[in-house]
Design a protein around this nucleic acid. Sequence first.
DNA 1: TAGATTGTTAATCGATTAACAATC
DNA 2: TAGATTGTTAATCGATTAACAATC
Lengths: 233, 233
Amino acid sequence: MRNKNTKISNAVIRRLPRYRRYLIELDKKKVDKISSKEFSELIGYTASQIRQDLNNFGGFGQQGYGYSVKGLLNEINRILGLDKEYKMVIAGAGNLGQAITKYALSLPHGFKLTKIFEIDPGLIGKQMEDIEILDYETIVDYVEENDIDIGVICVNPENAQDVADRLCFAGVKGIWNFSTVDIEVPASVALENVQLSDNLHSLAYHMNDLGHTQAAAREAKAKEEVMASRKAD
Amino acid sequence: MRNKNTKISNAVIRRLPRYRRYLIELDKKKVDKISSKEFSELIGYTASQIRQDLNNFGGFGQQGYGYSVKGLLNEINRILGLDKEYKMVIAGAGNLGQAITKYALSLPHGFKLTKIFEIDPGLIGKQMEDIEILDYETIVDYVEENDIDIGVICVNPENAQDVADRLCFAGVKGIWNFSTVDIEVPASVALENVQLSDNLHSLAYHMNDLGHTQAAAREAKAKEEVMASRKAD
DNA sequence: TAGATTGTTAATCGATTAACAATC
DNA sequence: TAGATTGTTAATCGATTAACAATC
């Protein structure tokens, strides 16, 4: 194993779930073993990168043979912590909260949504997709008493940091932030941001970017013209 | 401007929506100008990176002064293509489709959801959040006739590639893929993947990773023991 | 003009790819 | 054993940061 004491880069971690998805498919198709070269052709990373990535965590392969699909899948599940169960709550029962509630309930297993918390008195006490909506004021007590692992933030931007603060105080291990602002959490709490609108804006860019060279040339020309007119003044 | 003819890296593009969010906040607070140093302290990128990023697109600043908040916001809106309107359709009216429909309708402007397409006869003809659900078989005709820009894929993994193929054939400019599989599209079509479960798995990793050094040391030790026992055989 | 801050080149850092010895 | 393929070191590539001349 390499890097005994160095931190594993986030780029590596973000590839693990993808390795996992392909391994699950291979396992479904009764494929027993795969070489880094074969895996490379399937998944689209270089064989070198696959070997490098995996060797951050251990020597899971066997020279002259390759990797056992089942074995590697188990290792990745373990590395990602998917051999554990996580309890989660959602803060915010608005549009975004409803959307994520629907999604959370469709998650296969390992992640269990237990309650939703909301500030609006009109929603407190009601149910959303069979999940009870509780008073936001009780979130800290609930999270503490029920050992909730993950807090999902689906509130509007103004309240996101307050929710994060309370969740962290109450002892969650991770925060999944769907709100449209960046939040701060102590180093001891894991944070994943899902900025759907950022992602959509990135898509918009690429939709207008078919043929970059032309675009860049166009901009360069526009700039030159502006500069020329400035000089002329 | 640098890099007249070189492609701008995706890392840069992904930071643009974030610059934009902070500029919108600054503008709301009636801040007129900002230097790269001040912006750096606010947003958490280095001043150097901010200047490098922006200079990929043009010299938007003014020496000795900084950047005009309104001016820079306009430039970024234009660069991202947010000065245009986009029409979009969703394929798939299941849990994920419902979630994303809710979300899509909450988008501020510029992105307009017009129809949802579904294969299940029990849902065709119904409405979801006031959006009509049409027969999936008519998706190509509809997209062609109505100049739809973006197709959002919310179907199950088995059908995702078929949806992508039809959307691309029908002429969408971009695909926003929420399905749990990777899809392939022609180079002329922009693609953004939102792998929510991958993101959640990454969160799970980091939740179990508080204190990496210990974990790595533990793994190294385990490996050594395995090796030792192998040699002993 | 003097001070400030950009735009841009150069240096550094980190991540990916290539190469190959180790070994199953 | 011979062939295959890993694990790992070295080389390359790309992205970030630092430095500073240009200039508002």
